[in-house]
Nucleic acid binder design. Structure first.
Lengths: 225, 225
DNA sequence: AATGCGCTAATCCAAAGGGATTATGTGGAG
DNA sequence: CTCCACATAATCCCTTTGGATTAGCGCATT
């Protein structure tokens, strides 16, 4: 059966360009088009469930109601529908908000202009949300830049020891990070400063660094503090 | 110029399969291969910077040192190198940790088996990290499932000069934080190591600390990185 | 009993760091 | 013009590190 598509964009020219592209391929059926988020939701309300589109291509920037809000509402009201953002913007904030709102995919127009149909077919085959490489890269950067963080760890994760540091070594790394000297560490832990030093050097080996400063930098950067 | 590639995988068969695939295309040069993270880091240590690979294809599951740790250390020690995870696993936790550790791309072996070369070429052309659709989808789900949250970075407008450090001193503090020696700082800034040292000692005075480690700790704590 | 690993400890040596001080050149503020 | 802050540079002296090595002890696995 054909894939039922809805197109939401405030520019008539965009709507028709996309529509034409899709109709050149068999297997697509344009369900309806809308000019903005509000228009989309109203048109959805008039449909009976069997007439719902299975995919909505949604522009982000629109008057009346933008794509983020439309997806937020739509993914709640019609959770069976897949919402794919199709926009020229790659602003991190927008990407993040759209995804949080429930977007199933996120395509940059220029990246996929020639390939919307192919992308949608692929999506329909393997159930994986389409994401432009550029967007995926942006998301990856979001994660890397610590602008994003893992909130919950699910199961009782065995909390892997970073770099195979032993407990003692982690303990000593913590003191190292506080700027303590070997002798101070030794005194603090009631061991010889020589031993403290030995541990520290062992840590260097595991971290593949060769100075306190490098160890600290690595520890901070990788968050194994 | 050819793209210099290193391959890190514990299975010799995998290494040669990947190697063969790449060598069938012009424009790739296999820099070296390694059996695990430790092996990789050791081989890197023996290279001069001009011999560094520009891309490292890294398996995730390896004995001795796994891909996450290797990338964590590698992305710190050799930040110019791009690390692409190439694995059969798509566990969310692993994806997240690998990305946090500094992975530039993340490919599923089965998805890209026929297409590693193409993916790498694309990456080299547009500077965008390669990510398998399946992985991108997983990341998107991570964001959606509230397992991840946006951490608002607060950017203070006032741009306070921390601790009355001069511009030069801040510049030097940054290098200090990267774990550089006096002589390295001196070389980097084209000044005498003695001068570098003088600056560092002046910084200590202003920060009221008396060692690199303490300075770093304070710098990180106060966020004047 | 033997093996392996982690924690403890020590020693020697060379390199780097920390502290104090002195000195020169420059540019801006008074 | 002079004063002062800053960047530059050097020297002396002592402490701290980093690297390599050796070794005993306890504990768990085999």
């Amino acid at each position: 059966m054909p894939v039922r598509i809805a197109i939401v964009d405030d520019k008539a020219s965009n709507r028709s360009i996309i529509k034409d592209k899709l109709l050149r391929h068999a297997g697509f059926e344009i369900c309806f088009t809308a000019e903005n988020g509000k228009d989309f939701l109203e048109k959805m309300k008039d449909l009976s469930p069997e007439d719902y589109p299975s995919v909505v291509l949604m522009d982000l920037e629109m008057p009346e109601m933008d794509g983020v809000d439309a997806v937020a509402a739509g993914s709640y009201l019609y959770p069976s529908v897949k919402y794919v953002m199709l926009t020229i913007f790659d602003d991190e904030e927008k990407i993040f908000r759209a995804i949080k709102a429930g977007a199933f995919g996120y395509l940059l127009k220029e990246e996929s202009a020639e390939n919307i149909a192919g992308t949608l077919i692929q999506m329909n085959e393997n159930g994986v949300g389409p994401i432009s490489p550029g967007i995926a890269h942006k998301i990856l950067q979001l994660v890397q830049n610590n602008t994003v963080s893992l909130v919950q760890k699910k199961t009782s994760e065995k909390e892997k020891t970073p770099f195979n540091l032993t407990e003692r070594e982690q303990e000593i790394l913590k003191l190292l990070i506080q700027g303590m000297l070997y002798k101070e560490i030794g005194h603090k832990l009631d061991i010889s400063p020589n031993t403290a030093k030995k541990h520290v050097l062992n840590i260097y080996g595991k971290l593949h660094v060769n100075s306190k400063a490098q160890a600290l930098a690595l520890a901070y950067e990788k968050g194994l503090i």
